[in-house]
Each structure stands twice: as C-alpha cells, then as structure tokens.
Design a protein around this nucleic acid. Structure first.
Lengths: 226, 226
DNA sequence: CGATCGTTTGAGGTTCCTCAACAAGTGTGG
DNA sequence: CCACACTTGTTGAGGAACCTCAAACGATCG
C-alpha cells in the first residue's frame, strides 16, 4: 500500500553532512529509557544500531507501544517543547545518535537542505503513527499480526534479508497491536502451521506465502478461516 | 490528563489577521467529502461551523475515523504534498474555511507570527492522532466509550455547555473506537442505566457522575463491574 | 545449579461481534 | 396526506474470538 513510497525514500535517507557535525552517539542497554514523555525536548535522536520503541505510559501503569525504531529511524524531532512519547531501547546495545535541538534549529534556519531533510524526518514520525492506526483498525488478531509482519518486511532494513528480524519481544508486539501476549504467540504458531511463515528462532521470521499473508491482513477473517 | 494544555490554548487560538485575508469559506452537506487522501494538498482547512472527521479509507472498503473536527479545528496543514487523510462533513451544513497552501507557505516564510501559529496547528493534528491512540490502548468497550466521552467533554467547544453535543453518528463513534455500532449503543445505555450519564436526545450527553466515568476509563473493568 | 525471563500451549470464562428484528425519525413521490 | 423507502438507533440471542489464569519449556545469567 505505502510500500513504494518507503522504498523510494531509501536514497533520500542520506542526511546532509552538516548534521553529522553536531551529533554524538550514545549506547543504551536493553529496556533503558532514551527519553521520557513530557520531558523538555533537548535532543532529537537517530537509531544507529539495535532497536528501540516509542511508547506512551498510561495512567494505569500499562505501556502502549506507538512504533518500533530501527537503524536509520529518527525520533524526537517533532516535539516542540516537550517530548510527546517516551522511548526505550529494545536490543541489548542500542546505539543512538543525539542531535542537540538548539543547534539543529539553527541549522534548519540557515541551511535549506537541512530544513527539507528535517521536515522529511518529522513526517516519517507521523507515518509511523498512521501505520499503527491502520493496523489497529483491523479487528481480528490474525489481521493485525499479518499486517504487522508485512509492515516489518517492508521496512528498508529488511530489503536484502531473507527473513525479517524481530528485535522486539512478544510483549512489545502485543503492546503495539493491543493484544494479549498469548494471542500474538498463538497467532504466529497458526501462521507457521499453515505454512504462511517460517520461524528461524523466535526472533526471525521468513514469509513463505506472502500472497496469503496479504489476504489475511486485508480480508475479513471468514474467508481465511480453516 | 492533557486537559490543562488544551484549555491554555484557547487564548492562542486566535489566528493572525494575515491569515484571514487568504481564506474563503465553503459549505458542505452531510457525508460530503472535503478532501480525499492522497490528493495533492492544495489547501489547508478550518472548521467554522458544524462538524467533520478525518478518516482513512481502508483497502477492504471500511472506513477508519482518525479524529473528529469541531469548530476551530484545523486540518490538512500537516501534509507535505498529498493529504494523508480523507475528511468528510458530519453535520448537515458544515462551513469550512479554505487556505491556499502556496499562499500560506509564503506567509509562513515572511511572517514569524503566522509561522508559529501554523506550527501550533500542525501539532494539534498530531495531538488528535495521539488522543485516539490512547483511547485505542484501552481494551474494553466501557473503557473506550468512557474515555471518548471525557475527551469530547474536554474540548473547548464544550466548555460553557451543560451537555456534550455529539454531532457524529453512532457509526462514526464505532469507527473511531474500533467497535461495533451495537457495542457503542449498548455501552451508552449501560452508562445511562448506572446514572453515569444522561441522554437528552441521542446526540446530546450530559455527564452526571464524572468521577465514575474517569474510573471506568482508566481502571480495569473488574473494579467497575456491577 | 537455581532463578528469572521470554515463549508457547492448554482450559475456561467473558466480552464483543454477528445476525436479526424493531422503533423512531427523515425524505420522497404519488 | 399517506405509503414507502431509507437512515439511525436500540435491543435480543447466539456463538466466535480473545483475555485470563496456569503450567511447562527453553534460554540466559549469576
């Protein structure tokens, strides 16, 4: 659906050189918080290595995952004064580039190329929100999990790969899709049993029958039921 | 939760005069499309009177409501080249102000006040998406409907009013909350029976017991179950 | 090795979706 | 004006889907 657009973007992902001069890289351990919602937005971030997620901490203590962040993904740029989401590292050693926003904004005003680039990146953040909403519009677990796998497969990071690597835990996926962990797990096994996907280890999925997966994700369940 | 912020914003909602010179108002009938997703984003819009919604048209023909637009709400400003969402009028005669984006962008570059204003408005659009996501994180229908009512009550347009006016149909609410229409209807009757809300006509709700409603929206159901 | 975490599977119960019918309101045409 | 269709909202019955609780398994780590 929006696959073509993200593919075209690969070439545009190279940031202007000027940006590289104001960055510093930081390493995070698994589950470590990168930034906290409502905190002053002093920095923008880019994932260099590993994986992370944006999330909302709900009043009842639960956590809602808004989007997954893979190498190349930028976040925290949209915020005006305070960060709208928290973000935490998912992989063991996640490397993140940090851009001081006051320097960034000065660059944006002086360098038109940087301005365009930053604008692109900000709209990518909105894209992430939208992709998730399209997933949540789906009613059944089968639809949501199928759609999720397709979205992960269409990420730039998966292009050359044979299988999709899922750096996040089942719990993270469940928080993302608003499902119970057990439902996510069961749905994945169902897909495996039906030979739609193959699991090479728990965190690596290979799509065997993409056509069927697309059918599951868009069509109503009744067509796909066994 | 984010009530205070939206309340503070009321004073800031007055647009710079310069903006009013490049606008033209249009009337839409109920269900009429204001703009279509993926269409070139030639205009930004502001609701003057009536109500509308932003939505995504899904591949399976269903419609997903992203957010409801009330008088004063601005939309279509975020888009870079094409509109990300469709929008359609909900009330019978919905008046919409239309801002040509090429003029707007010229104004943004020349007038710092306009630039700040437009930036505010764009972030309001993201706020709408986020508010909906927080609603969708809730699992039970009772939680979602309660949260929805609270959000509607906290809108600037409801401040002086005794009851909340719901310009949208139950179908629209269902599409917004990803529930079946019947579930929305049943949940509202439940809340009415429990004297949490009172219905003055189908499209007007008065919150009788706000404390309880807040409890329903945040707590797990089991605490609230009869 | 024990402990914890992440994942999977099972059993049971509840919620919510589906299908159906009905009532009230609205518009249309004869 | 009434008959008719259509929309919108509500209620009921039944069943499927998913959540909850529980337990077992493998992996990792101290």
């Amino acid at each position: 659906m929006d696959r073509s657009s993200s593919r075209d973007d690969v070439s545009a992902r190279q940031p202007p050189l000027a940006l590289e001069h104001i960055t510093s890289a930081i390493l995070y351990k698994k589950k470590e918080t990168i930034c906290l919602q409502n905190d002053p937005a002093a920095f923008g971030y880019k994932i260099l290595h590993g994986a992370a997620c944006e999330c909302v901490l709900l009043p009842d203590g639960r956590r809602q995952v808004i989007g997954f962040l893979m190498p190349g993904d930028v976040f925290g740029l949209w915020a005006r004064h305070t960060h709208m989401f928290s973000s935490e590292a998912l992989a063991e050693s996640t490397a993140v580039a940090r851009y001081p926003r006051h320097l960034l904004e000065r660059l944006v005003e002086s360098d038109a190329e940087v301005a365009r680039h930053v604008h692109r990146l900000a709209s990518e953040a909105v894209d992430r929100m939208q992709r998730r909403m399209v997933l949540l519009a789906k009613i059944s677990a089968l639809q949501r999990v199928s759609g999720f796998l397709l979205q992960m497969a269409d990420r730039p990071m998966s292009y050359g790969m044979d299988g999709i690597s899922l750096p996040m835990s089942r719990y993270d996926i469940a928080d993302y899709l608003v499902l119970a962990v057990e439902t996510v797990s069961r749905t994945l096994t169902q897909l495996r049993i039906r030979h739609i996907i193959a699991l090479a280890g728990t965190r690596c999925v290979r799509i065997v029958n993409r056509r069927a997966l697309e059918g599951y994700s868009t069509n109503d369940d009744r067509a796909a039921r066994h």
